[in-house]
Design a protein around this nucleic acid. Structure first.
Length: 475
RNA sequence: GGUCCCGUCGUCUAGCGGCCUAGGAUAUCGGGUUCUCAUCCCGGCGACAGGGGUUCGAAUCCCCUCGGGACUGCCA
């Protein structure tokens, strides 16, 4: 069987969009599933809007997501190819030079809309005489090359592996430009040529390309190329149900990355947008996704990108990842926190930081929540008592309790959580009071707050010395 | 306007003619666990867009209406 080849073809005019990321992911999953190849093709033929920076950032973000490509191409490196084929079509009478300027075109378009006619190119340059061409050229006009659509084309069928055949009664387009006046190819042309030349066997792209695919059918025909298979993914929508855009909040994977989302959470969430495994599983490892991925399980209705579900996924992964990795991921966020200076981070030490982060994980759903996190603050100096904590400390037994604890902990080297529990129990019995009367003042004194992570763990991490110091400072 | 796609809880989805008084997840609400918060566990609320057919039987098939979306460039 022939190797399956798919591609992801972004244009570097912005950061990698989550919609694009999903398309890339589905292509990658498809390739992996079938032991095929994923081709990354940068469609940078729009000289004005494309940039090297965006190209790099897209590659970085794909890598971050764990989407690796097998081959890499850039359309700007391939301009001669497109030009050659465009000329070939002109030569064969399947395309022609058009001297209309953008301004003229725009004006006619406007007029057509006003008059209720479809705003399509009227084909006026189809049969220009040599003199007419020369006159235009003398005027300094740079021609484009337009593809000549068949005169009679009742309807087009786009075979779609996901939605089934899609029939177009008519194409809402006239002869379209395949080579722009600056010599760069337009999207549909470069796309068809490259998909063919790169031996793409399956084109999996978003639904906004549906009408493009229809147009491309003619190009395949005119060029004498065999068609690949096609599949169109539904659109990703914002909360307002319109195409996910800047207005809908964060849309680039870069932004999610900066906000402390884990790539595995992102991948998991994206995978479940438009695809499901048909059982009730929600959390998938990469391997499971590859194993279970199938075109049959793709739905064709559009989906809203739900941040809350992503947060849940992220929280799940934060709780599950290896502690070492979590520490690595968390550190930059801690360092970026205003309330934590380098000195106090250093003072805490690696081991205590490790344990503290492990303790705080369950309450965090994205790494950015670690910045100025209340629970983390417990482990740094400079605590202030909240009003509620003050109140707890003013309870009748609080002073006695805390003094008893201080007596127990003084001079100790370290404390395990179990030893803390034991001490609390003994103190409770010694003073003949309830657990709350011990735990609450202890928490208030040590953390300055009345809620937070398990106090026995907190104390164990801080150690007896710091704990005693803190208690003494409120007595 | 034209062309095309789509329509099950707020959101992501299961369902492919009887297993559906429509299942799961998330969000939300309530309860439990805990010194407390978070986690976790248990429970509640919550949907087949509407109308016609076809059929013994329709969320599932057909038609119409309505609604949403995309495209309609020398952007991709």
């Amino acid at each position: 069987m022939k190797t399956k080849r798919v591609r992801f073809a972004p244009s570097p005019t912005g950061w990698l969009h989550v919609g694009g990321a999903r398309t890339a992911l589905f292509n990658w999953l498809f390739a992996k599933k079938h032991e095929g190849k994923l081709i990354l093709r940068i469609e940078d033929t729009d000289v004005e809007r494309s940039s090297e920076e965006y190209t790099d950032s897209i590659k970085e973000d794909l890598k971050w997501l764990g989407i690796k490509w097998d081959e890499y191409y850039r359309q700007s490196d391939r301009l001669e190819i497109y030009e050659r084929y465009a000329r070939k079509l002109v030569h064969e009478g399947k395309a022609y030079h058009c001297y209309c300027t953008e301004e003229e075109l725009e004006e006619r378009r406007k007029k057509a809309i006003e008059e209720g006619r479809p705003p399509v190119y009227d084909g006026r340059c189809r049969n220009l005489t040599e003199e007419e061409k020369k006159r235009f050229e003398d005027e300094g006009r740079e021609p484009t090359i337009r593809f000549k659509l068949p005169e009679q084309q009742p309807h087009v069928v786009v075979p779609d592996e996901i939605k089934g055949d899609i029939e177009f009664d008519s194409l809402t387009t006239g002869d379209f430009v395949i080579l722009k006046s600056d010599g760069t190819p337009s999207y549909n042309f470069a796309c068809v040529l490259d998909d063919h030349l790169m031996e793409i066997s399956f084109v999996l792209r978003a639904e906004d390309h549906l009408t493009n695919t229809a147009k491309q059918m003619f190009l395949y025909e005119a060029l004498g190329f065999e068609q690949p298979k096609f599949g169109h993914l539904s659109m990703l929508l914002g909360p307002d149900k319109s195409k996910l855009s800047k207005r809908s909040g964060a849309t680039s994977v870069r932004e999610f990355r900066k906000n402390g989302y884990l790539p595995e959470a992102m991948v998991n969430h994206l995978a479940l947008l438009g695809w499901s495994s048909k059982d009730q599983q929600e959390i998938f490892s990469r391997e499971e996704l590859i194993e279970k991925f199938s075109l049959d399980n793709i739905v064709d209705s559009p989906q809203v990108f739900d941040r809350e579900k992503l947060d849940w996924f992220n929280g799940q992964y934060i709780k599950e990842v290896e502690l070492e990795r979590f520490v690595e991921l968390a550190t930059p966020f801690l360092e970026g926190s205003e309330s934590v200076d380098e000195a106090s981070l250093k003072e805490l030490g690696d081991e205590r930081l490790r344990r503290a982060l492990d303790l705080v994980r369950p309450s965090v759903s994205k790494l950015s929540e670690l910045v100025d996190n209340e629970d983390m603050a417990i482990f740094f100096e400079g605590l202030e008592l909240t009003d509620e904590a003050e109140e707890v400390l003013s309870w009748e037994d609080s002073d006695r309790v805390l003094r008893a604890i201080v007596t127990r902990f003084s001079g100790m080297e370290e404390l395990t959580p179990e030893e803390v529990s034991e001490s609390v129990k003994e103190t409770k019995e010694e003073i003949d009071t309830g657990y709350k009367q011990v735990y609450k003042p202890l928490r208030a004194a040590v953390t300055g707050k009345i809620s937070g992570p398990e106090i026995k763990e907190v104390i164990s991490i801080l150690g007896p010395e710091k704990t005693v110091n803190r208690i003494n400072s409120v007595l």
